[in-house]
Simulated assay, not measured.
Amino acid sequence: MLAVRGDCVGSKRYRALRPILVFCLPAIGDFIRCHSAIQIIAATFPGQPIDVITSPLAAPLARLMPHVRKAWTVERHWNPGLKERVRLARELRQENYQAAYLLTSSTK
């Protein structure tokens, strides 16, 4: 199940721009390596809010990243059915993301 872990950056400038979604690997070590990619994305798109999808274990680390606005969580071995995928797609569509980066080899 997907859960939102609250805004990490609350300034008004982040709310005015369309956010970018980054799907990070769920393991802690892999998530830490994703931080470099998040920094590159933030430098490429200055001022754009960045949201991440990661595991519940890595979500607290996302809150420490200055470029991350929001951390969505999914279970590490999450295997959604069609109904769950449609629900997730609707939730993510409401955020009006301008781009998504998949930093994993999984196509879930």
Score class of each variant (00 low, 15 high):
Ala89Pro: 00
Leu17Gln: 14
Lys108Gly: 05
Val74Glu: 00
Glu84Ala: 12
Leu17Asp: 10
Glu84Trp: 01
Arg5Trp: 10
Val86Glu: 10
Thr54Ser: 07
Ala43Gly: 15
Thr107Met: 08
Arg90His: 11
Val9Cys: 12
Ser105Phe: 10
Pro49Asn: 09
Val4Trp: 07
Ala37Ile: 07
Arg85Tyr: 00
Arg69Trp: 04
Arg76Tyr: 07
Gln98Met: 13
Ile50Thr: 14
Met65Ile: 10
Asn96Ala: 13
Ala89Phe: 03
Val68Trp: 02
Leu88His: 00
Ala62Pro: 06
Ala3Lys: 13
Tyr97Ala: 04
Thr44Ala: 15
Ile38Met: 13
Ser36Phe: 11
Asp51Asn: 12
Ser36Cys: 07
Arg93Phe: 09
Arg90Phe: 05
Phe45His: 15
Ile28Asn: 01
Ile38Cys: 09
Gly10Asp: 13
Thr73Lys: 00
Glu75Arg: 06
Glu91Gly: 09
Thr54Trp: 03
Arg90Glu: 12
Val22Ser: 01
Gly10His: 13
Lys83Asn: 05
Arg13Gln: 12
Trp72Thr: 00
Asp51Gln: 04
Lys70Gln: 13
Tyr97Gly: 04
Gly29Ala: 12
Ala99Gln: 11
Ile38Trp: 09
Leu92Cys: 02
Ala100Cys: 12
His35Ile: 11
Val74Ala: 05
Val22Leu: 02
Gln94Ile: 04
